[in-house]
């Protein structure tokens, strides 16, 4: 292997807290097919960003993602991670520094959970002790007790537990970049919600650059820092924060993707504390909501109780104000205005 490849890999690998990924006019044409599967795809993912690719099945979102670790080789265009052209690196060496989680999980059935997680550290030549410590640490990170699970085999685990191991395995060598292909797609709704919540908490502490493919728009809203809504040939219809996409869908295609209830979905993204609160009084103190809950939770409580107003409490439990349906509505309007303002600012900057 040429020395430059080594240095490039070392450099990529050292950015464990997220690297910058740039795709520039990347296309994929399968032999014997007229239409490209992916056409001139360009995007920049900032370090530590969680980017969701959303689109219908067959739109090329998975193909686009798999070109980043070269499971699929691009036909043209360039892909760089932290400025390093990955197409010039050895694909296997490259992949050891990119975490990869797929829907079918693909745990190795003949290896224990610990052995599964230790695969990449072993490939990288870590010492036994360092590998073992890392396995323990990761199992704890994904909330599986090492004593119980390390020496079990994949078939002895539930689907949700297997997917946690899949995530732990992808994180094993502390890669700067993670690629996730519908990782929670095959789990039941309750498990999925739990895994999503855990994953969000995990990402807060590890801050990897993550490309996450899903066809579930609600999952995209819930998890993503930014969402790319994709249509045929992986064309980007809109690429923005969840709130911005919900407030201002770029076109009918995006609107159809959001579906009904855009306002409710937006409320779920706005914390109670951003609303202008009414006066705190004993009259509203029968029903309480916390400042870091979402406005959607607040609305829910208002409807369920039928009360005209509910109390808002801070983290210490002190009553700090009240909320009504009108105030929630105003907050939603203000949120849209604020979004528009940032957009025009960005426009001016650009």
């Amino acid at each position: 292997m040429p020395e430059s490849t080594d240095t490039a890999l070392t450099q990529i690998a050292s950015r464990t807290d997220g690297a910058r990924i740039v795709l520039d006019r990347v296309s994929k044409v399968y032999p014997g097919q007229d239409a490209p599967a992916v056409e001139e795809f360009s995007m920049v993912a900032e370090p530590g960003e969680l980017i969701m690719f959303v689109g219908p099945s067959g739109c090329g979102k998975t193909t686009t993602m798999k070109m980043i670790n070269r499971i699929i080789e691009p036909s043209s265009g360039s892909i760089t991670i932290d400025g390093r052209d990955i197409l010039s690196l050895d694909p296997s060496e490259l992949r050891r520094h990119i975490g990869y989680v797929i829907q079918q999980i693909g745990l190795f059935p003949h290896m224990t959970i610990a052995e599964n997680i230790a695969v990449v550290p072993k490939l990288l030549g870590w010492t036994k002790q360092r590998t073992a410590d890392r396995v323990d640490e990761l199992l704890q990170t994904v909330q599986l007790d090492p004593g119980t699970f390390a020496h079990r085999y994949p078939r002895q685990l539930s689907g949700g537990q297997q997917q946690r191991v899949g995530v732990a395995r992808a994180l094993a060598a502390d890669p700067p970049v993670m690629l996730m292909d519908e990782p929670f797609g095959a789990t039941d709704p309750i498990t999925r919600e739990k895994l999503q919540a855990e994953f969000l908490r995990l990402q807060e502490s590890i801050g990897k650059t993550i490309i996450f493919v899903t066809h579930d728009f609600d999952e995209a809203i819930r998890l993503g820092d930014r969402i790319a809504v994709l249509s045929e040939r992986s064309q980007i219809e809109q690429f923005d924060t969840p709130a911005a996409i919900l407030a201002e869908p770029a076109n009918d295609y995006v609107r159809s993707f959001i579906g009904q209830g855009a306002a409710l979905k937006r409320l779920a993204l706005i914390p109670v504390e951003t609303a202008v609160l009414g006066a705190a009084s004993a009259a509203v103190d029968h029903h309480r909501i916390a400042t870091d809950d979402s406005l959607r939770d607040a609305l829910d409580l208002l409807i369920v109780t039928g009360a005209p107003a509910i109390g808002v409490v801070d983290r210490s439990g002190t009553l700090v104000g009240s909320l009504t349906v009108e105030r929630i509505s105003t907050a939603l309007g203000a949120d849209a205005t604020a979004l528009a303002a940032t957009r025009s600012d960005e426009g001016r900057l650009a």
């Binding site: 014997g32 239409a35 067959g58 739109c59 090329g60």
Partner: peptide, 12 residues
């Protein structure tokens, strides 16, 4: 794209 993927699947 959906269509073309489907035809790929059929043709393979």
């Amino acid at each position: 794209m959906t269509v073309s993927t489907a035809t790929t699947a059929i043709s393979t």
